[in-house]
Design a binder for these strands. Structure first.
Lengths: 197, 197
DNA sequence: AATTATAGTGAACGAAAGGTCACTTGTCAA
DNA sequence: TTGACAAGTGACCTTTCGTTCACTATAATT
């Protein structure tokens, strides 16, 4: 029990930051949750802020990897049912993956305090998903699956409601099942509305 | 300069809470911003938490007033253009009104810490607007302005993207003009999509 | 076997937090 | 005019914060 302590600190810090925020988190409690005494932390990080910075750097890097590189884009679905299930696969990942949930929470809590968190929040909550689905809808229009329209507008109209329900799950996890059903219903409503008859 | 001090404290506290969060706000700075020394605060409130509770009570009361009573519901619009301008009037109010902006920010920051803030956040960000527009869309369907569909689904599909852009304005005020244009474009897109031909 | 770097301990630090209290000041009713 | 009270001050209290440091135990390196 030595070498992985740095990683364990980062994991515990993300957990606490995402629940209590940066200011609400204190080093004593953080180290205690790892079975350490508080000064032990400083063998791995020079300050509380340093922990925060490493976490943010990783969030930014992870985001760039996941949304920035073209090979991570989901393929253009080739049926309405495929479209819905592609959506639900992404939604389930983003709601169940603890790392991603905590990242969203922490960005929510620190968006007014830290400029990089603010920028990343906008990408996470708004522009990232919109860009991804702009491509998907463009592809679907070319395939003739949905009627020709502004793909970016459609992407925005599609992802923002889903995003809102994902935030609801973060805020009130007991409503997760309900929210997922609503997302699926919305997804079907969407293809029914924009799909070619 | 005496009697209104209590109100001035509440105003300043909402301002600070909305920027730095509850934990990030300290009484010294708060009182200094009012030209007081910190112990002066305690002549008006028995603790920092008491200030928070009064603010939250007011938010809850104000919300109930604004969204709970039927007489505050906007009338059902009677043309697509009227629908768009009704929306834009509401959006402008909710984006420009400092009190409302700060309320949203503070609910965003405290939603994981305070249960009442969490509940109010869900109403503010999701269910409140949806309920309001469910009635509006029901009315519009009866008038034959838009095609018959699930009014609640439409309300959700309409308000969530607008909500997302309002959050963007809170996060990055410099993008406000742009966001308002996007909201209007979205509103027109929406009536064009669901309106009867 | 001796050395050295690493991880962790526990006591202590100064700063800043929320809060208390004896005191002064200004206002107004009796 | 006086007394009472609300509003504000400044010194002080306790607790907790992030951080430092001399020290120890351990495991790897020479």
């Amino acid at each position: 029990m030595a070498k992985d302590t740095k990683e364990r600190i980062l994991t515990a810090a993300l957990e606490m930051f995402s629940q209590k925020g940066y200011e609400g988190t204190n080093i004593r409690e953080l180290s205690a949750s790892l079975g350490l005494v508080k000064s032990g932390i400083y063998k791995h990080f020079e300050s509380k802020e340093a922990i925060w910075n490493v976490l943010l750097d990783r969030m930014i890097a992870y985001y760039g990897e996941r949304f920035g590189s073209p090979e991570h884009l989901p393929p253009v679905p080739d049926s309405p049912e495929d479209f819905v299930s592609t959506t639900m696969r992404m939604v389930n990942l983003t709601i169940r993956d603890e790392q991603i949930v905590k990242t969203r929470k922490v960005l929510t809590l620190e968006q007014y305090r830290d400029e990089r968190a603010r920028d990343l929040a906008t990408k996470h909550f708004l522009t990232g998903l919109t860009e991804m689905f702009t491509r998907i809808f463009s592809g679907m229009m070319e395939k003739g699956m949905i009627r020709r329209d502004d793909p970016e507008m459609l992407a925005f109209a599609y992802t923002a409601p889903i995003s809102a329900l994902i935030h609801l799950c973060d805020r009130e996890p007991e409503k997760t099942e309900d929210a997922i059903r609503k997302i699926e219903a919305f997804s079907r409503h969407f293809v029914a509305t924009y799909g070619v008859k």
